Simulated scan of single mutants.
Amino acid sequence: MPQPLSHTGGLAPAALTVAQLNWSANGRQLLDNISFSVPAGQMLGIIGPNGAGKSSLLRCLYRFLQPDSGCIRLDERDISQFSGREFARRVAVVQQDTPAQLDAAVQDLVAMGLTPHKGWFEFDNRDDRERVAAALARVGLSALAEQPFSLLSGGERQRALIARALVQQPGILILDEPTNHLDIRYQIQLLELVRSLGITVIASIHDLNLASALCDHLLMLDKGRLMAQGTPAEVLTQQQLSDVFGVCCSITPHPQHGKPQICYYYGYQADGMSDPDIASACHHKGTAQ
């Protein structure tokens, strides 16, 4: 079984462990023998081109999809053994598509996160209201608590959904492309917020430089297979980006945080390159700089 690594390289307890996970649909193998573990309290980024299996993997992790085979363990228990309410107390999810037309007030949407902790017909109490207020303050939305959710900007909606997740008090937060359609400032702000929460985070991220800067570990998927896993420096290499994404790039340490910073080369259409030509072209472009 895969062993998670801490920042110092020693063994760290795993919040979630996946072993030999397989899932197929309509005769296509969409996840093929995926194994990894997530260290408790760290942020794991899932990267890969469109169709790589990122969303399918996340949907298996939060039990929307039932894998064909393999095991997903949370706190050393198979996730299938948890009741729905118990699982919701452990794992919160922010999906890719937000319900933009929802008419509920922001504070009411956030209060929905209390549901796994409440009994049937149990009303919210003072502690519940304080928890909602604290979550709104944490994401910077206190001033918009009574605003209809539908009137929020894209970045504000994502923060409101994260506040709802915080009210669930989960140990693990799963996000599917949380920065989709956001301006760059709000992409950075949102991921910095998520990273600051002090819980285990698993997020699919489209922007590789954002993933490099803000994630402790990365999984690189391609066509449903796990191509690489490790620290950003271990995963984001010129060869692996060429093989998986079909791009030419150079990689240097970021001047602020020192993690890999990717600089892409251009001219694919003009060169008329097909996939087998990528590696050779990357070599020539790199040596020409």
Rank of each mutant, 00 (worst) to 15 (best):
A288I: 01
I46D: 07
M43V: 07
R73S: 15
Q29G: 01
Q20V: 00
S280M: 07
M220N: 06
A163P: 09
G171D: 15
V94T: 08
D124Q: 14
S35P: 05
I79H: 06
V247L: 12
D277S: 13
D183M: 08
C248D: 07
Q101D: 15
L197T: 10
P148E: 11
V38Y: 02
R164A: 13
I172G: 08
T287K: 14
E177R: 10
L236W: 04
A12L: 12
Y264P: 01
Q42V: 00
D183C: 08
L65H: 13
S35Q: 04
L58V: 10
E234C: 06
G267Q: 09
L166I: 13
T287P: 00
I278R: 14
A233P: 00
N22M: 01
I262T: 10
P253K: 06
A228D: 03
D97H: 14
Q107G: 01
F82Q: 04
H181F: 12
L44Q: 04
A203T: 13
A135N: 09
Q229W: 01
S83Q: 09
E76D: 15
E234T: 02
T200W: 08
R185W: 08
T8C: 11
F64G: 00
G258D: 06
I174D: 10
I278D: 02
C215Y: 03
G198S: 09
M273F: 08
C249Q: 04
V194H: 02
A105W: 01
D128L: 09
H7D: 14
E86W: 00
I251D: 04
G272F: 13
